[in-house]
């Protein structure tokens, strides 16, 4: 049965070291493929498949239209469609290249037996504000995490992929003001439009920087657990490779640092410095020097004053 399940990820050639660590964390009996989006592929590995190789007419337009991060995002359902329809896999699990499996992947395979589509929410509890951000930051970036989703072969699933492909063909940019956050924000519709969707709130799935404030990790009796209740199944390190000092407390308090060190040690076997990868938090809060921040604030204040002179009108965010 395991061969009917495929785990796949999508990245650039430069990001391949992540996929090596991901591959090492998978059990040997599970199929694993890596979609590569670069126009000119420079690796030859039986596990990789190039976006150019997909027999789909839209690919060239995608490559012309998008930057790297958008192209990776937009191509996911195209790869998925290829694996389901051409390669006839029964179950697909997409994970970001920066995912690392710690617990039993069988738990995911078991759940997807009963649903067509499985998603995970990025957070599961209200929290107000943390060093990562506040709740409204999730409102325009998406309720469900696009770093993991699992689907099962069915007409319903194929409809979902068709729908997603059509949207991502021209609307997979990163432009929050226009309601676009790559492929992720579109997932908000999935539990509404499609049948047999599970939103899995299990806190042992998809541990990541954005939900660390609600999850404490502990290791006892040879097992990693989250909040001492759920088994830790997998972690996405996408936003943990480098992060501002303000988040250090969150990482320390969650007991996460030890897992992060294990991951980074694994990664250094393949590359000395982690390759760059898109992070929504870094895009929203770019790390800039204090003088630049000050200058920006001053300029904005001059612009606001010109707009509203001589009346003071409360400007709020």
């Amino acid at each position: 049965m395991a061969s009917q399940t495929l785990i796949f990820t999508v990245c650039t050639v430069a990001q391949l070291p992540f996929t090596k660590v991901l591959g090492d964390s998978l059990p040997p009996n599970i199929s694993f493929k890596i979609g590569i989006v670069d126009a000119n592929r420079t690796v030859f590995d039986s596990r990789t498949i190039s976006l150019n190789e997909l027999p789909m007419s839209e690919i060239q337009s995608l490559q012309q239209r998008y930057d790297e991060a958008s192209l990776i995002a937009a191509s996911k359902p195209f790869f998925a469609d290829f694996f389901l329809q051409t390669k006839q896999y029964q179950t697909l699990i997409y994970v970001d290249p920066t995912v690392f499996f710690i617990g039993d992947i069988g738990a995911i395979v078991q759940v997807i037996k009963n649903y067509d589509i499985v998603l995970t929410p990025r957070i599961t509890h209200k929290f107000g504000k943390t060093p990562y951000g506040d709740e409204k930051m999730f409102l325009n970036t998406g309720m469900y995490d696009s770093g993991f989703w699992a689907i099962r072969q069915s007409d319903n699933t194929l409809q979902f992929l068709k729908w997603w492909k059509e949207r991502l063909f021209d609307r997979a940019h990163f432009n929050l003001c226009e309601g676009m956050n790559h492929e992720q924000l579109w997932l908000n519709y999935v539990p509404i439009f499609f049948k047999n969707v599970l939103v899995n709130k299990n806190i042992g799935w998809n541990l990541a920087l954005h939900n660390l404030h609600e999850r404490a990790v502990t290791f006892s009796e040879n097992e990693w657990k989250v909040n001492q209740t759920e088994k830790l199944i997998f972690v996405n390190f996408r936003e943990c490779l480098s992060f501002p000092k303000a988040l250090n407390t969150t990482i320390q308090a969650s007991g996460f640092d030890s897992i992060r060190k294990i991951y980074l040690a694994n990664l250094t076997q393949y590359i000395s410095r982690p390759p760059s990868i898109f992070s929504v938090r870094s895009a929203l809060f770019p790390q800039i020097s204090p003088w630049k921040r000050f200058l920006k604030q001053q300029l904005q204040s001059i612009i606001d004053s010109i707009s509203h002179f001589p009346l003071y009108h409360k400007i709020t965010k």
């Binding site: 929410p121 957070i123 599961t124 509890h125 209200k126 709740e135 409204k136 930051m137 999730f138 409102l139 325009n140 970036t141 309720m143 929050l176 003001c177 309601g179 908000n188 539990p191 939103v199 709130k201 965010k317």
Partner: peptide
């Protein structure tokens, strides 16, 4: 109403209802 910052009156917040 501040779409760039994720705000749309009372409505956008309710996306969280089935999650929280």
């Amino acid at each position: 109403i501040d779409l760039c910052n994720g705000l749309f009156v009372d409505q956008n917040w309710v996306n969280f209802a089935p999650i929280f």
